[in-house]
């Protein structure tokens, strides 16, 4: 790895560890390998959002040309958000693309991602299904995002009505995550989700 990239990541590491956000447990960075090319980030779901109480793990890949090019970041923890793919965890955020600037750091990236969780941009979606629900059925979106937070990010909410619907599908032999995705995508309409799931099974056979 180019010297400037590794050296800068080392300096940033110290900055993040000393920062007050770490003291408040809002953000965290860890090394994955010794060469500083791969890191693991963690952000806490912001208060007063459906993500509150959850911990979201991020994969951070630092390119050799860092800080002249942005780090590649994606969510490892599954999340229901208009600007984050519910399938791959890919993020749609301008500073990770054309709005990157060399003075930005891992700390500012993680704080920006946290801000993205508080303020989604449904007009610039990464996940069209989620964005549509966010705009047309905000309460349904909130419930779904909260449910995903509790299942995948250790959030506190227990939503037995949603869990029951998932169980109805898993009892039919559907894998739990697939059941959750189908129900979330069809606004928790059990009939339509079932239909969609069996259509895909039939198409595969």
């Amino acid at each position: 790895m180019a010297n400037i990239a590794a050296q800068r990541i080392k300096r940033e590491f110290k900055e993040v560890i000393k920062s007050e956000e770490v003291a408040k447990c809002a953000i965290k960075v860890e090394l994955v390998n010794d060469s500083f090319t791969e890191l693991k980030g963690e952000i806490a779901g912001p208060p007063d959002t459906p993500y509150e109480g959850g911990n979201f793990v991020l994969e951070i890949k630092v390119p050799e040309t860092y800080p002249f090019n942005p780090p590649k970041v994606r969510f490892i923890t599954k999340i229901w958000h208009p600007n984050i793919s519910s399938v791959t965890g890919a993020i749609c955020l301008d500073i990770l693309k054309d709005q990157w600037a060399a003075a930005m750091t891992l700390r500012t990236v993680l704080l920006s991602l946290q801000a993205l969780l508080s303020a989604a941009e449904p007009d610039d979606p990464q996940d069209a299904v989620v964005a549509k629900q966010y705009k047309e059925q905000p309460e349904m979106f909130r419930q779904t995002a909260k449910h995903w937070t509790s299942v995948y990010a250790g959030g506190p909410a227990k939503m037995s009505d949603l869990d029951d619907k998932i169980r109805r599908l898993t009892d039919m032999g559907i894998e739990e995550h697939n059941a959750r995705v189908a129900l979330s995508s069809y606004n928790w309409d059990l009939e339509r989700a079932t239909e969609q799931l069996f259509m895909t099974v039939m198409a595969k056979n």
């Binding site: 050296q7 800068r8 300096r11 940033e12 900055e15 800080p67 060399a102 003075a103």
Partner: peptide, 9 residues
């Protein structure tokens, strides 16, 4: 000015 914000040195 104390620090270069590109390399952080």
């Amino acid at each position: 000015c104390q620090q270069c914000t590109v390399c952080l040195k």
